[in-house]
């Protein structure tokens, strides 16, 4: 019985969301607000159970890892935003997050997006693929070179670079569209099979 009710609710909400394809309407609005409200509540519970408790509360208060007082204080400083007069305190937490992120990812990005890519581009020309790869990398890099106007040889090479990028994006587009269609098929299978029982 509970399963049947669940299937009916899911099917009707799916149709309400699909009604957006026609135009905005009260049924879509209802489904949208329900979706946002339920998911926000779900995430509060999820983050409490899977982030706050295992990463801060339990280690700090049950395992005695006192170093975790620092993130606790930073978190409390963030909550100060709720009090306009002392809301400025939260800026310290924000500065900490942004600073740590920038510093930490500087190395990660430099390695994965630069040095490792350069290393992977040092190829011999025994295969045509290697030649295409090296030309594509160099022309793409020239497109992202901001210090010179894209004119003459530089402009031509940058144009070649953007062609390489567009071909790659085209392939990625087709691939992702296929993945989205499989999502649609999954939803249709739910509506026609689980809900209406037309598919076996």
């Amino acid at each position: 019985m509970a399963d049947t009710i669940g299937i009916w609710v899911a099917a009707l909400l799916t149709l309400f969301i699909f009604s957006f394809l026609y135009k905005d309407n009260p049924l879509y609005k209802m489904a949208e607000h329900l979706f946002i409200g339920v998911s926000a509540g779900y995430w509060v519970s999820y983050l409490y159970q899977n982030v706050f408790k295992p990463n801060l509360y339990n280690p700090l208060f049950h395992q005695g890892k006192l170093l975790l007082i620092i993130p606790l204080i930073l978190g409390l400083m963030m909550v100060m935003r709720l009090f306009p007069k002392i809301g400025w305190i939260s800026r310290w937490s924000i500065a900490f997050i942004v600073g740590i992120t920038s510093g930490y990812y500087l190395i990660t990005y430099l390695q994965t997006n630069a040095v490792d890519q350069v290393r992977a581009s040092l190829l011999n020309f025994s295969q045509i693929n290697n030649i295409i790869l090296v030309v594509g990398v160099l022309s793409g890099l020239i497109y992202f070179f901001f210090s010179a106007e894209h004119r003459g040889v530089l402009g031509g090479t940058a144009k070649l670079g953007i062609w390489f990028l567009m071909v790659a994006f085209g392939a990625s587009f087709g691939y992702t569209v296929m993945a989205r269609i499989s999502l649609l098929i999954g939803r249709m299978q739910f509506l026609l099979g689980d809900w209406l029982g037309l598919l076996h």
Partner: peptide
Amino acid sequence: YLTDDQFGYAAGVDGIMLR
């Protein structure tokens, strides 16, 4: 803030765009 949920957020932003 709308929601942490990816598609819940997308639905909410779509609503804002339309209204």
